[in-house]
Computed example of a mutant assay.
Amino acid sequence: MLVSEIEIITPQSVNDCLLLLSKNETEHRIIAGGTDAVVRMKEGKWRPAAWINIKGLKDLRYIKEKNGAIHIGPLTTHTDIIHSPLLQKRADVLVEACREVGAVQMQNMGTIGGNIGTASPAGDTIPALFVLEASIELQSINSSRLIPINQLFTGPGRTVIKPNEMITNIIIKPQTENEIGIFQKLGPRKAQSISIVNVAIMLSMASNRECLGGKIAFGAVAPTIIRAKKCEALLSLNPLTDDIIENIAKVAWKEVMPITDGRATAEYRRDMASALLERGLFRLMRRWENK
């Protein structure tokens, strides 16, 4: 099938889109920015009989604070997130992740909902959403449900999203004054390619280098994004001195579960996961001390 032979349907509202999704008459797939879709189609994948183009649904593009949480529409672009004063102040780890999503052109076109829906284990925004304890709102024509992001993915490219559902909202927990976050990525070319390894870190700090707790999420080291629970348990046991940080990073080497593929060996990914975590923790300590 040629790309030009694929039907594109453009709904005029979210409700129109949900009506289309409720009909199982043909194989369909939602498209927004299309940054992943074009690549997959060229590879001979993602060839549905019809694409549902939701790029024009402006009701799904927003960033707002409501009832103590931050709500982000699925059609919000990476550029929108990068330039949001609210997210720069209350979710800097997500802003940093979006800065690493491809070139500027991809940041302008790509959407956070698309990054989630693609369900790539190397997706840059997803580890950041893990440490921000995001919940994903899924809506169908008759109902909606809220899924914690750590329950959304079932494997590479696979989620619990049903064929008649679409992402309509991403809800994150804002960072408090004593929380600091960072996103670290290793790719073949800076900010231009899929991650070989990435990590998002969120720490809740007290005085000096005393950590009250934290969250660490790795990408591209397992079939889905993983939380490094063993590393997290060590964060609050002692002040985060240089020696303690180095020891925590060594634990990460054993906690990740990477594979060997065309981009890197499993051993290299383990080494880099440990190195990125160590570098990220050192940088966070410098930020905290200079705050």
Rank of each mutant, 00 (worst) to 15 (best):
8 I>E: 01
10 T>W: 01
13 S>Y: 00
16 D>L: 02
18 L>S: 04
19 L>H: 08
23 K>A: 06
26 T>S: 05
27 E>W: 01
30 I>E: 07
31 I>Q: 11
31 I>Y: 08
39 V>D: 10
39 V>M: 10
40 R>C: 09
50 A>M: 07
51 W>V: 03
56 G>D: 04
57 L>I: 12
63 I>A: 05
64 K>G: 08
65 E>Y: 02
67 N>P: 00
71 H>K: 12
71 H>S: 09
71 H>C: 09
71 H>I: 00
73 G>L: 04
79 T>P: 00
83 H>Y: 12
85 P>T: 07
86 L>C: 03
90 R>W: 00
90 R>M: 02
90 R>T: 03
91 A>W: 06
94 L>K: 11
95 V>F: 05
95 V>Q: 07
100 E>L: 14
100 E>G: 08
102 G>A: 12
104 V>F: 05
106 M>E: 08
107 Q>V: 05
114 G>L: 10
116 I>L: 14
116 I>S: 09
128 A>C: 08
130 F>R: 02
130 F>M: 10
131 V>E: 04
131 V>N: 04
134 A>N: 13
136 I>V: 15
139 Q>V: 10
139 Q>Y: 03
144 S>E: 08
144 S>F: 09
145 R>V: 06
147 I>S: 03
149 I>G: 14
152 L>H: 04
156 P>H: 03
164 N>S: 11
168 T>W: 04
171 I>A: 07
171 I>E: 09
173 K>N: 08
175 Q>F: 04
175 Q>S: 11
176 T>F: 03
177 E>A: 14
179 E>H: 05
179 E>D: 05
180 I>S: 10
183 F>H: 14
185 K>T: 15
188 P>D: 13
192 Q>C: 07
193 S>V: 05
193 S>L: 13
194 I>H: 10
195 S>I: 08
195 S>G: 13
196 I>S: 05
198 N>V: 10
205 M>W: 13
205 M>C: 14
205 M>Q: 06
206 A>W: 03
209 R>Q: 13
212 L>A: 11
213 G>N: 09
221 V>T: 14
226 I>T: 14
226 I>M: 13
227 R>F: 03
229 K>V: 10
230 K>C: 04
232 E>W: 04
234 L>A: 04
236 S>Y: 10
236 S>L: 00
236 S>H: 15
237 L>F: 02
238 N>I: 07
240 L>A: 13
244 I>K: 09
246 E>W: 02
247 N>K: 07
248 I>H: 01
249 A>D: 00
249 A>C: 02
251 V>Y: 00
254 K>T: 04
254 K>F: 03
259 I>R: 00
262 G>I: 03
265 T>C: 01
271 D>Y: 00
273 A>S: 15
275 A>S: 15
275 A>H: 11
275 A>D: 07
277 L>A: 11
277 L>N: 07
278 E>M: 06
278 E>D: 10
279 R>I: 08
280 G>A: 12
280 G>F: 09
282 F>S: 01
287 R>Y: 10
288 W>F: 14
290 N>C: 14
291 K>D: 14
